[in-house]
Amino acid sequence: MVIAGELDPDLAAFLSKAGPAASLSGETSVEAFRARFARRPAGTPETVASVHDVAASGVNLRVYDPQPANPGKGALLFFHGGGFIIGDLEQQDGFCRLLANRVGIVVVSVDYRLAPEHPYPAAIEDGWSALGWLSDNARQLGVDPARLAVGGTSAGASLAAALCLVSRDRGGPSIAFQLLPYPATDLRPGAWPETSDTLNPVLPRETAEWFASLYLSGGDPAQAYASPLVAADLSRLPPAFILTAEFDPLRDEAEAYGARLRSAGVEVSVKRYTGMTHMFLSFAAAVPAAARAIDDIVNALRAAIVQPAAAPSDARAQPR
């Protein structure tokens, strides 16, 4: 990774003020990480017409539907981030509400099992169960089964990418689109480059490696579902939108994954956000460039899985 330029001024100011609250570094145990990120967002969540929790084969899901009376909507199966070891349905509740309202789709958030208690491939199998549930219940949810997308952030994007491979390999439900903001696509030792702590204050390489070791728990990091970048065959996968951040140790592997998808004949758009760090979408309330990236996500989802006649709300919220 070549470090050049500087952090976006708005992001730098925000990170300086937020301190440890905006960083995935600084803890030495799973329990400490979970305690630190267990806080619930303040304020009133954005209203969505219908929000309810369900269980699918033991996996808890939260379903957001902005237009319960309208059939034929698209749907996004969403996986939260958190290094495979932290996070739950509350972590990005606000982001799921935003996407449901602004895009005009059903969003199904997956409360997958976390490592190290449930190492690879438990989270992927939970995603497989959730995808099957969404496909089986699409018509009941007012969803067009041909308009199913998967996505997530960071570790959640890694799970979404892996799920596309799993569904292709197992002959599962058709996936129309994959949304991959700063995904981890290569968990092999040494995959992440050295980066400056000044320019990469959110996700140091050592923290990323620790997350991966807990998730794999001795499993082979060169397996395709663990590290999609090294999969032998990336053909016949859904179109993808991959977002990367300039100062993120996951940047190069995510962009390499986009290049490999393109070489395999998959339609893919890769966009690097200059001056940004890992997890930057979560800072959109204070960082205009991050808010613009959310606009890009909304537009990509609309283009991929929304019928032309749809009229989504312009209500806004921030991911958390």
Rank of each mutant, 00 (worst) to 15 (best):
P45H: 04
E46C: 12
T47C: 12
A49K: 11
S50I: 02
S50D: 14
V51I: 12
V54I: 13
A55P: 02
A55M: 12
S57F: 01
S57H: 14
S57T: 13
V59M: 05
L61R: 00
R62N: 04
V63I: 14
V63Q: 00
Y64I: 11
D65K: 02
Q67R: 15
P68N: 02
P68F: 03
P71F: 01
K73I: 07
L76Y: 02
L76I: 01
L77W: 00
F79W: 08
F79G: 02
H80N: 11
H80D: 05
G81Q: 07
G82F: 01
F84N: 13
I85D: 11
I85H: 03
I85R: 09
I85Q: 12
I86F: 12
I86Y: 11
G87C: 11
G87S: 08
G87V: 11
D88Y: 10
E90A: 14
Q91W: 10
Q92M: 14
Q92S: 14
G94D: 14
F95M: 14
F95V: 12
C96I: 06
C96D: 00
R97G: 10
L99T: 06
A100P: 09
N101W: 04
N101T: 12
R102M: 11
I105M: 12
V106E: 06
V108L: 07
V108W: 01
D111I: 00
R113S: 05
R113F: 00
R113Y: 01
L114E: 07
A115I: 09
A115D: 08
P116G: 05
P116N: 07
P116V: 06
E117G: 10
P119I: 02
Y120G: 05
Y120M: 12
A122G: 06
A123M: 03
E125P: 07
E125W: 10
D126L: 06
W128V: 14
S129K: 15
A130L: 04
A130R: 03
A130E: 01
L131Y: 03
L134G: 01
L134A: 07
D136H: 06
D136N: 15
N137W: 04
A138F: 03
Q140K: 15
L141Q: 07
L141P: 11
L141A: 10
G142N: 09
G142H: 05
V143Y: 01
P145L: 06
A146E: 15
A146I: 05
R147G: 05
L148C: 02
A149K: 09
A149W: 04
V150R: 03
G151W: 10
G152F: 09
T153P: 08
